[in-house]
């Protein structure tokens, strides 16, 4: 009985978290913000469902498979997100005018910008691509 309730609660919470990932993916304004939604609630949602499956089938074979899926998910999602984020920044997909502080721009530019002034325009490597002004 308790197991049934726990399974149901975890499945619902997981599906809700997955839905919030989808909502964030569609509604947030720029790529990096959307990646926040794509990494965190998505991982929480999947882990919740994994917990539910583990409670439903408490046998060794199932638990080990679930552990492996969770381990892979927790280690590969940050790596993929890091690669995409890096590519996004370096191909100019980050709208610089929406950044309050941008220390990566200073670290990447060959000539350090003068102290005090903050480069507010586009970076040197933004390649002339338009920022995400679609919708």
């Amino acid at each position: 009985m308790i197991a049934t309730v726990l399974t149901g609660a975890c499945v619902l919470a997981g599906a809700g978290a997955a839905l919030s990932a989808g909502l964030g993916l569609l509604r947030l304004p720029d790529l990096l913000s959307r990646m926040h939604a794509a990494t965190k609630p998505q991982a929480v949602g999947l882990l919740m469902v994994l917990v539910a499956v583990g409670v439903r089938f408490p046998t060794g074979g199932v638990i080990t498979t679930l552990l492996l899926v969770a381990l892979l998910q927790l280690t590969t999602v940050p790596i993929a997100a890091h690669m995409v984020g890096r590519a996004a920044y370096r191909t100019g997909r980050v709208p610089r005018h929406l950044l309050y502080v941008d220390e990566l721009d200073e670290a990447l530019s060959p000539v350090p910008p003068g102290a005090g002034e903050r480069p507010s325009g586009r970076g040197p490597d933004s390649g002339g691509e338009e920022p995400d002004a679609e919708h």
Partner: peptide
């Protein structure tokens, strides 16, 4: 942290996250 991290983001996704939400990149 993982459980907590789903929270504020949900709020921002449901709320009216404007066109001009300001973020930062720090080192």
């Amino acid at each position: 942290d993982l459980l907590r991290s789903a929270g504020p983001l949900t709020w921002q996704a449901f709320g009216s996250a404007g066109r001009d939400t300001v973020n930062s990149v720090i080192g």
